[in-house]
Design a protein around this nucleic acid. Sequence first.
DNA 1: CCGTATCCATTCCGATACTG
DNA 2: CAGTATCGGAATGGATACGG
Lengths: 146, 146
Amino acid sequence: MAKRKSLKEDPCPVARCIDVVGDRWALLIIRDAFEGLRRFGEFQKSLGVAKNILSTRLRDLLHAGIMEIMPASDGSAYQEYVLTPKGRELFIVVLSLRQWGEGHLYQHGERCATLVDRKSGKTISRIELRTSDGELIALEDAVFKK
Amino acid sequence: MAKRKSLKEDPCPVARCIDVVGDRWALLIIRDAFEGLRRFGEFQKSLGVAKNILSTRLRDLLHAGIMEIMPASDGSAYQEYVLTPKGRELFIVVLSLRQWGEGHLYQHGERCATLVDRKSGKTISRIELRTSDGELIALEDAVFKK
DNA sequence: CCGTATCCATTCCGATACTG
DNA sequence: CAGTATCGGAATGGATACGG
């Protein structure tokens, strides 16, 4: 006993997410992947994580279908880790964390990277809630319907 | 040596978030709080977590300013745990996880709660990216500007 | 440079007993 | 019902050595 209960079969999708990306490193690896990191050593240096941990985390992400292996883009013999479409859809998750962190976990000053539209260069705005016909909703008005 | 490195001072806001809500239970407690749970026993029953763990997690969330103590609404002697404004702003985070999980971690069928606007009853749509002037952006076009 | 394997310390978690 | 105390086991993390 004292067996860690898996959340994979939990009826709540949030719980299932946490089972997949809810550890200390997964979302940070994914964040780095969004910033263009691909190689084992790049992740290792960026995160300062032990190599064995990184190794198992990457394997977990591969197995979860969030990342995939690609042949090295520079012709070297090694492989690179890139996000799958499923993984790229975690962008909203990472972004929402980023926005919350910027708003509540910073004193002032230190502004880090902002997000822009590649085409127009325009800043991407804070995530908001809308109804299906585009109407803005306040956080307080969002309720769950069983 | 072998000292767990704190992410509190990390320059990246995502990392700081993970330091605060990146464990196995915090976001699930917060999720439950959004669904109206307030009492120690309610959380405990919903999560199936050991009481000592729940106790420390709630204390951490109080200390992080994400939840706060309120006198019991039913006149009983006990206290209740409710989200602060800072905590409620995690709604987007929980929702983005939920949407990703629904999209990628479910086979089919089992649809869980959907989100509606309290006033109009209209369904709240999938989170999307927009520029500051309201234009929709595809995920692929969002890039970080240092 | 890319990883795997090993060893050890720390942290986390679950179960239970216990107090008020 | 609401928590605290304690214990043992599991998972995690760090450092390093090693092989491809």
